[in-house]
């Protein structure tokens, strides 16, 4: 049961194509796990379809059609066979598979949960897959901009509400400390634009802005 579906305005950005790659990935993972949100997306895409029907057409000359017709017989560009992720990751939502090429490993930083930096083409956002052991937490932090989190397994509580598999949490400008609850390991995708600013006493010393800068 999804208690925290993707907010309407984020889904609208996704449906219109305005949402950048990283956040779109978090939404795509949520969509795989939430039938109701898929149905809401279908409504929005139906709106897109009607708006497409409604625009006054812009002429395309005959050469435009000819150029396309000559390309129809070309074999489709050999679509790279999607490399299957390693066995460890196969059970993760399919939207993540293209981002988990064979050989991907969890990286255990000195501080905080294990992570995988997802290789997005767009560098505007940082997309991380996090694995938080039961009782573990993401250090207290403040978001300067929106942070998009989708829970893939396990559950966490961020001091405001509880999130479990499929739930999506979109927050900005608040301090929160997500803590993994329950027995299961908590796996989630976290996407944000600006480096998080750690606000705890210890956190200030090791502000990841320093460590993340090279990735942005």
């Amino acid at each position: 049961m999804i208690r925290h579906p993707v907010p309407d305005e984020v889904l609208l950005d996704y449906a219109s194509g305005a949402l950048p790659e990283g956040p779109s990935l978090a939404v795509a993972v949520h969509l795989e796990l939430c039938a109701e949100s898929r149905s809401r997306l279908a409504e929005l895409e139906a709106v897109g379809g009607v708006l497409l029907d409604s625009v006054a057409p812009e002429a395309i000359d005959a050469a435009g059609l000819d150029a396309v017709l000559t390309r129809l017989d070309e074999p489709a560009p050999a679509t790279l066979p999607m490399p299957r992720p390693d066995a460890e990751f196969v059970a993760l939502p399919a939207a993540l598979h293209p981002y988990l090429p064979p050989g991907t490993r969890w990286h255990k930083p000195f501080f905080g949960p294990s992570e995988i930096v997802l290789p997005t083409r767009s560098k505007s956002h940082l997309a991380l897959l996090l694995r938080i052991e039961p009782g573990g937490s993401i250090p207290q932090h403040v978001h300067e901009d929106l942070e998009y989190t989708t829970l893939i397994s396990g559950a966490f509580h961020d001091g405001f509400s509880e999130y479990s598999r499929g739930d999506m949490c979109v927050v900005s400008g608040i301090e929160h400390t997500p803590v993994a609850i329950g027995e299961e390991i908590c796996v989630c995708i976290v996407v944000y634009r600006n480096p998080i600013i750690l606000s705890g006493t210890f956190g200030r010393l090791i502000n990841p802005r320093r460590w993340f800068r090279h990735r942005l």
Binding site: A46, G48, G49, L52
Partner: peptide, 12 residues
Amino acid sequence: ARPATWIYSIAR
């Protein structure tokens, strides 16, 4: 999906 919806999502 309706055809227009499907074509819209491809164009997007």
